[in-house]
Simulated assay, not measured.
Amino acid sequence: TGLVEPKAFPPVPETRLVSDAVCLQMTATQVVPAWDVAFEILTLGDADAAEMLALATLTKPGPFFTRTHELGRFIGVRVAGQLVAMAGERMRPDGFTEASGVCVHPDHRGQGYAARLLRDVTAGILARGEQAFLHSYADNTTAIGLYESLGYRGRAEVVFTILAGA
């Protein structure tokens, strides 16, 4: 179970703490305009699930499990048939949607993939009349800088806690 709370979550009987981390919750009410890209953006789905999980496991953008791609729309970029970048949607509290799973294979960084994918995900959320938000590990200054360049602003520090059965 993953919990996002303003402060560390107290111990829960019959569970064990897997991890906890301070994160910056960020929101966007608008997104910078799109720019031309020299790569094709693909819609990802069940057929891509194993590669999506492998990419997330390699890059560690945050929790990503076997069925995370079912929580919302995910898009990605393939190079020579390999999934090298993705971004999508995860939590959906009423009126809000979280942009999530933003990651790029280390061998393919610096091509603008993360920026363009997150821009498209965010634009889709805003077009539905919802508030876009995301979480970044508070010490990931590179990601935070990218998110700010796309129109996201820091809202609050939160603690992300993962609990499992004892």
Rank of each mutant, 00 (worst) to 15 (best):
residue 5 E to W: 14
residue 6 P to V: 10
residue 8 A to V: 14
residue 9 F to G: 00
residue 10 P to H: 07
residue 12 V to D: 06
residue 13 P to E: 10
residue 17 L to W: 02
residue 19 S to D: 08
residue 23 C to N: 13
residue 25 Q to V: 13
residue 27 T to V: 12
residue 30 Q to L: 12
residue 31 V to D: 05
residue 31 V to T: 11
residue 33 P to L: 07
residue 33 P to E: 07
residue 35 W to F: 11
residue 36 D to T: 11
residue 37 V to M: 07
residue 38 A to W: 08
residue 38 A to P: 09
residue 40 E to M: 13
residue 41 I to N: 00
residue 42 L to R: 14
residue 44 L to W: 06
residue 45 G to D: 04
residue 45 G to R: 05
residue 45 G to M: 06
residue 46 D to A: 14
residue 47 A to C: 07
residue 48 D to Y: 02
residue 48 D to A: 00
residue 49 A to Q: 01
residue 49 A to C: 03
residue 50 A to D: 14
residue 51 E to V: 03
residue 51 E to F: 03
residue 56 A to L: 04
residue 60 K to Y: 09
residue 61 P to Y: 04
residue 66 T to G: 05
residue 67 R to C: 06
residue 73 R to Q: 11
residue 80 A to D: 15
residue 94 D to E: 14
residue 96 F to N: 05
residue 96 F to V: 07
residue 97 T to D: 02
residue 103 C to E: 04
residue 114 A to Y: 10
residue 114 A to W: 03
residue 120 D to R: 14
residue 122 T to Q: 05
residue 128 R to F: 03
residue 129 G to I: 00
residue 129 G to S: 09
residue 130 E to D: 12
residue 131 Q to W: 00
residue 132 A to Q: 00
residue 134 L to W: 03
residue 135 H to P: 03
residue 136 S to D: 08
residue 138 A to H: 12
residue 139 D to E: 15
residue 144 I to P: 03
residue 147 Y to K: 08
residue 150 L to Y: 10
residue 152 Y to D: 07
residue 155 R to I: 07
residue 158 V to P: 01
residue 159 V to R: 06
residue 162 I to P: 01
residue 162 I to T: 12
residue 165 G to C: 12
residue 165 G to S: 14
